[in-house]
Simulated assay, not measured.
Amino acid sequence: MTTFFAAVWASLPLASWLVLGVCALLIGFGKTALGGVALIAVVLAAQVLPTKDSTGVVLVMLLVGDLVATWTYRHDVDWRLIARLIPPVLVGIGLGALFLNWVDGPVLKRTMGAILLVLLVLGLWPDRLAAHRPSVGLAYGGLAGFTTMVANGGGPPMSLYLLARKYDKLRFLGTTAWFFFAVNLIKVPFSIANGIVRPDTAAVSLTLAPVVLLGTAIGRVAIRHIDQVLFDRLVTILVGVAAVYLLLG
Rank of each mutant, 00 (worst) to 15 (best):
R224G: 13
T111M: 06
F181K: 08
G153E: 01
A139Y: 12
A131R: 07
R128D: 02
G96F: 09
L173D: 00
R165M: 14
R198H: 13
R110I: 03
W125H: 06
G219I: 06
H132C: 12
Y140D: 00
G219C: 08
F180A: 07
R198C: 09
A202N: 03
R133F: 12
V103Q: 10
R224D: 03
M149I: 10
L122Q: 07
P156H: 02
I186K: 12
F179D: 00
G113Y: 01
P156R: 00
Y161H: 05
W178E: 01
I192P: 06
A139M: 14
G145I: 08
L214A: 15
A182C: 13
W178S: 14
Y167H: 14
V212C: 11
G123Y: 03
P134G: 03
A202G: 05
P134W: 11
V121N: 00
I196D: 00
D127N: 13
L208E: 04
L208A: 12
R165S: 11
W125I: 00
N152R: 08
T148F: 05
L116G: 00
V103T: 12
F190C: 02
G219K: 09
L185I: 10
N194F: 07
K169C: 11
L90K: 02
R110T: 12
L185Y: 07
L98H: 13
M112R: 04
G113N: 00
D104A: 14
L122R: 08
A182Q: 05
G215M: 10
Y140C: 02
G155N: 04
M149A: 13
